[in-house]
Amino acid sequence: MINLVFNEITKLLGKRRLLVVTLIMAMLMAVFTYAQAKEIERTRERLGTEDWRTTLQQQIIDTQNRLGSTRISDEWRQTLQIRIAQQQYYLDNDINPAEPGAPTFLRGFIENSVQLLLPLMVMVIAADLVSSEKSLGTIKLLLTRPVKRWRILLSKYITLILAVSFIIFIFGLLGYLISGLVFGYKGWMAPVISGFVVQGGELDTASTFIIPQWQYLLMAFGLAWFVSIVVGTLSFLLSVLVRSTAAGMGIMLAALISGTILSNMVSSWEAAKYLFMVNLNITSYLTGQSPPIEGMTLGFSVTILTIWAAVALFLSFFVFTRQDVY
C-alpha cells in the first residue's frame, strides 16, 4: 500500500497541481494582505486615532446608520444587528476583536476561504485523480497489475487526504508568513470570544467563552480541514464517475457556487439545509453569524457533511471496483 501511495504522490507532483495551488494561494494572500493594510490605514486617517476602542465604536455607529436605511432586506438587517451586538460585546469586555498581527489576519482569511476558496483548491486536486487516468488511458496499465481495484482506489484516496492536509498546512504557513511581513508576527495569545449562539435572530451571549487566538485558529483550521476533506471526497466520486476532468470540475464548481448563493437566500426553503453546499461555511458557527437556515448548528452541519462524504466514498468504491474500463 505504501508503494501505491508513493506512486500516486509521484504522479501528483508530476502534474504540478500542488505547485499551482500553492502559487494561487500565495498570490491571493499577498493581495488580501495589501487590501487589509490599506483598509486599516484609511480607517486610521479617517478617525485620526490608533485606539481600537474608538475604531470599533465608530464601526458600530456606521452600521447603525446603515440599519436606518429602509432599503435593506430583513435578513441583512438581522445579520447587521447581530454584528453590532457582537462588537458591542467585545467592547464591553474590553477585548480587541482585531488585534493587529498575522494570526488575526489568518483568522479572518480562513473564515472567508472555507466556503469557496479552499474547496476550489481541493477540487483542482481531487477532480482528476481518477478521471485523468481514464482520459490518458493509463488506467489500463494501472488495473492490469496484480493489485485489487479497491486497493488502487484506496491509495488514491489516501493521497487525496495527504494533499488536502498539505494544502491546509501551506495555507496557514503562507498566510502567516506573508501577512506577517506587514502586520507583524505577534498575536497568538490575543483573546478571542467564541461560543456566540444565534437564536431566533437574536445574539445569545450566555455561553460565550474566551480563548487564546492560537486555540481558536486550531479549531478553525480543523473545521476547514474537515470541510476540505468532504469536498475532496465528493470531487473524488465525480472523478470516478466521469471520464473527463473538465466535466467533473464543472459539476463541482456549479455546486460550490450555488452553495454560496443559496446560503444567502434560502432561509425560507428549509429542506435546503440538507444540501452539502449550504453547510460549507462551517467556521461561521465559531464566530457566531446567523446560519443560512434557522436551526442549523455546528453539530448539524458536521453530521450532514459526514453523511454526504460517507455516501460518496462508498459509491466511489462501489462503482470503481465494478465498472468496465474502456
Binding site: T10, K11, G14, R16, L136, T138, K140, T144
Partner: peptide, 10 residues
C-alpha cells in the same frame, strides 16, 4: 491494450 498510454508528465 490499444495504445501504449503512459504518464506523459513523468
Amino acid at each position: 491494450i490499444e495504445n501504449p498510454d503512459l504518464y506523459s508528465y513523468l
